[in-house]
C-alpha cells in the first residue's frame, strides 16, 4: 500500500536553527499519498519543529519542501493558500474559545476558502459528523471534554479538505481515558485514505496503524521503516537504545 501513489510531501536537506542552536540538521523525507508515517524520538530531537516547518509555522533555515507538487518555500508563494491544503492538529487543541464548535470549523471556510455561509455550514456540520460530534455543533470549547475538543480541532482541519494532515502530539494533553476516542477518529481517517504525518508517543497505535515509523534524534532521521522493523529489529544502535528504553517504561 505504501508503495503506491505519488509524493504528497517531499522534504530535502531541511535545516532549521534557532539562533546558534541547530535543531534540524538535514532532513530528507518523502511521504506518499494515503501513507501514514509516525515520527518518534526523544524530546528535543526536533520532531515537532520538523512538523511545524512543513506548513511554515517555523521558517526553515535552508532546504526545500514541496507539498503536492508546490514548492512552499518559493518566494511569492501564497502561504495561506498552501496552508489550506495542509491540515494541522495541535497538542493543546488551540480551539477558539469565543466561538462554538461549528464556528471553529467554519471560520477558515468563510474567510480563507471564501465559501458562502450556507455552504460553509453544510461542510462544517459534515466535518463535525465525521468526528462523531454533530450534536455538539453549538457547544463552546469550554463545555467540551479534552477528547471532544481535539476531535473538533481535527474537524476544523478536515473541513478544508487538506491533502495531508499533520498531527503534533495530538493525545499528549489528554487524560488517558479520553485518548481512545481521538485515536479512533485518526483510524477512521486513515481508512478514508488521508495522508498523515504524526508526531506522537502512542506506540501501540503506531504498531497497529502506521505504514512507516521514523525515528529522529538530534535533528536527523536515524532510521525509518515499517513498524515491525523499527520496533522489532532496529538496524541502528541509537534506535535500539530508544526502543528498549520506552519498552522498559511500559
Amino acid at each position: 500500500m505504501a508503495a503506491a501513489g505519488r509524493h504528497i510531501l517531499d522534504v530535502r536537506g531541511l535545516h532549521k536553527s534557532f539562533g546558534t542552536l541547530a535543531v534540524l540538521k538535514g532532513i530528507d523525507f518523502r511521504l506518499r499519498e494515503r501513507e501514514l508515517a509516525f515520527v518518534i524520538g526523544p524530546s528535543g530531537s526536533g520532531k515537532s519543529t520538523f512538523l511545524r516547518c512543513c506548513n511554515r509555522l517555523e521558517e526553515p533555515t535552508s532546504g526545500s519542501i514541496h507539498v503536492d507538487g508546490t514548492d512552499i518555500l518559493a518566494p511569492g508563494v501564497d502561504i495561506n493558500a498552501v496552508r489550506r491544503r495542509i491540515g494541522m492538529v495541535f497538542q493543546s487543541f488551540n480551539l477558539y474559545p469565543h466561538m462554538t464548535a461549528l464556528g471553529n470549523v467554519t471560520l477558515a471556510l468563510r474567510l480563507a476558502s471564501r465559501k458562502s455561509k450556507a455552504e460553509a455550514l453544510e461542510i462544517g456540520r459534515a466535518a463535525l459528523a465525521r468526528v462523531g460530534l454533530a450534536h455538539k455543533a453549538q457547544a463552546h470549547p469550554g463545555e467540551l471534554s479534552g477528547g471532544q475538543q481535539q476531535r473538533v480541532a481535527i474537524a476544523r482541519a478536515l473541513a478544508l479538505e487538506p491533502k495531508i494532515v499533520l498531527f503534533d502530539e495530538p493525545t499528549s494533553a489528554l487524560d488517558p481515558e479520553l485518548v481512545g476516542s481521538v485515536l479512533q477518529v485518526m483510524r477512521d481517517l486513515r481508512e478514508t485514505g488521508m495522508t498523515m504525518l504524526v508526531v506522537s508517543h502512542e506506540l501501540q497505535f503506531a504498531r497497529a496503524a502506521a505504514d512507516r515509523v521514523v525515528f529522529m534524534e538530534d535533528g536527523v532521521i536515524v532510521e525509518q521503516g515499517p513498524p515491525e522493523q523499527v520496533f522489532g529489529a532496529p538496524q541502528q544502535a541509537r534506535t535500539r537504545a530508544f526502543v528498549a528504553r520506552i519498552d522498559g517504561h511500559r
Partner: peptide, 27 residues
C-alpha cells in the same frame, strides 16, 4: 492571547489581519 491561537488560525490558511480581527481581538 495564547500563541497557539495564532498558530491554529494561520495553519488553516487565515492571513495575519484575518487572524487578528476574527480570532485574537475578540479574546
Amino acid at each position: 492571547v495564547a500563541k497557539g491561537q495564532w498558530e491554529a488560525a494561520r495553519s488553516t490558511g487565515l492571513g495575519f489581519l484575518q487572524t487578528l480581527i476574527y480570532v485574537v481581538l475578540p479574546q
